[in-house]
Design a protein around this nucleic acid. Structure first.
Lengths: 123, 123
DNA sequence: TTGATAATTCTATAATCATGGAAATATAGA
DNA sequence: TCTATATTTCCATGATTATAGAATTATCAA
């Protein structure tokens, strides 16, 4: 994961309403929830929620699909997994040896074209 | 970790200069770097760096210690570990069963007064 | 088509955040 | 003490972000 994208995702999560939306969606994964249901559950005005959903969407943290008049939003677990990977890849000092080796994942990794980029300096 | 604190830490990291500072400090853990060294390496004006260091410090991501005329800043790995714990605790759906069980850590966990609070609903 | 509902976009406003020069504070050495 | 260096704080400015009412677009059902 690139620096830039990590910042985008961090910024998307670093806001009370958006974090609440994301966590709510995680509770309702993988189907997700309609925007109206999210707005009602969190007590957010439509326009405000729409703004935040766009941010989350732009960061790749949520996906949406239309079903009739409703648009369902669902969390993209892979994005969170990437973020956690980025953070753990950069949160500890190699020289200090404080990294535990266990690798934590949120979801099975999809094979992408850029496979093998991350954590490349492991030896 | 509380919602509020997670947001504080996420916001602290969600900024280009601050993320760069944090990553630089991680490379130099555990001694850390003097503010002047950070400013030089990243090409940041003193006042700007000081502003960002305060943010990181306030979020609990870095600590500082004075040594002569220098103030050394070092990363607080436990804070990052807490954040990663928070994210993995909330990034996946229990019902969807997409959580891997492996627990990733950045540093050995310090025993604190609130031991056992996190991940309490595991059964 | 009409009416109702779902969601987004438009828009203005307010609030927060980032930047960096200049002044202030703190420490060390002569 | 005086001077140099390290760092922070003060302050003004500009940029970005959050909020939410109103208007708009889209879908469905009859």
């Amino acid at each position: 994961m690139q620096n830039r994208q990590a910042i985008t995702i961090l910024a998307a999560l670093a806001q009370e309403s958006r974090l609440a939306v994301y966590r709510l969606l995680v509770e309702h994964a993988p189907e997700g929830l309609a925007a109206s249901a999210i707005a009602e559950k969190l007590g957010l005005p439509n326009a405000t929620l729409s703004f935040h959903l766009k941010e989350l969407s732009h960061a790749g943290l949520v996906s949406s699909r239309q079903s009739g008049r409703f648009i369902y939003y669902a969390p993209v677990i892979e994005a969170m997994d990437e973020l956690v990977g980025y953070l753990t890849d950069h949160c500890c000092s190699q020289s200090a040896g404080t990294c535990a080796t266990a690798k934590r994942k949120c979801a099975p990794k999809k094979r992408v074209a850029t496979a093998g980029k991350r954590r490349s300096g492991s030896t």
